[in-house]
């Protein structure tokens, strides 16, 4: 899932300072689960802003709402009318959500309340860690299911580097050395010979910006027909 982190209150305050009517919009999926932008955080942020405004003697109307996902327009549509009553939207979605909401509410200002961090997993309650860089060219198969691009700070494909010590990374004693993990995993799998292969430089061209993806199988027929029709023209 996408892991985000709430921006510091002062930054948010600064960004919304000019608006008298503010809608705080939460996203109920990834960022809710990582406790950064769901219903609960909307509530907390709204309360914090109200207290802050109170202290500053500012009168601001704050409305709270949370939708299932801000990265799907169908979920956004029902709140468009509501949103228009406000001066600005403070979105607690990931960067993708913020942009879609901004598109749909154009020209309304949509301000991000989160910093979108990474694609990751929940280690335990309250702890998340990055697992994928979305590089577009997955090599997990070679490395026992452990991604050296993401989990090695140097992103090297022929590790480990000389800084691995006692299974920990030289950048931090808290951090496991991805290559030690890879070695151990491959050892358990009996595939240590994988490591004899020298990996060629990674083709980062696959990671095109901005990425876009279409799965023709899922693209609705009507649209396909349209496309075909256009093509025929």
């Amino acid at each position: 899932m996408i892991v985000g982190e709430r921006k510091p209150l002062n930054e948010i305050k600064e960004k919304v300072k000019d608006y008298k009517k503010l809608l705080i919009l939460g996203c109920g999926t990834c960022v809710a689960v990582c406790m950064a932008g769901g219903e609960k955080e909307v509530e907390l942020l709204a309360s914090q802003l109200r207290i802050a405004n109170g202290l500053d003697k500012k009168e601001v109307e704050i409305k709270e709402a949370t939708i299932q996902r801000q990265c799907d327009k169908e979920y956004i549509e029902p709140i468009v009318e509501l949103a228009k009553k406000y001066d600005a939207v403070l979105s607690l979605a990931c960067g993708a959500g913020v942009q879609l909401v901004a598109d749909m509410l154009e020209p309304m200002p949509v301000i991000p309340g989160l910093n979108t961090r990474f694609i990751g997993i929940a280690e335990e309650e309250g702890k998340w860690s990055e697992r994928c860089r979305a590089c577009g060219n997955c090599v997990l198969g070679e490395y026992g299911g452990i991604c050296p691009i993401t989990r090695c700070p140097k992103s090297i494909l022929n590790g480990p580097c000389g800084g691995s010590q006692g299974g920990k990374c030289e950048t931090s004693k808290e951090r496991d050395c991805a290559w030690a993990l890879i070695y151990n995993r491959l050892a358990k799998q009996g595939k240590l010979e994988n490591l004899y292969k020298v990996a060629p430089p990674k083709d980062f061209r696959t990671q095109d910006f901005p990425a876009r993806q279409v799965n023709e199988n899922y693209v609705k027929a009507t649209k396909t027909e349209e496309k075909e029709a256009t093509a025929k023209k």
Binding site: K40, E43, L44, S47, Q48, R50, I51, G54
Partner: peptide, 10 residues
């Protein structure tokens, strides 16, 4: 819950 604390302040 944090919100209880914040609300009390509010």
């Amino acid at each position: 819950d944090t919100i209880h604390l914040l609300k009390a302040i509010e």
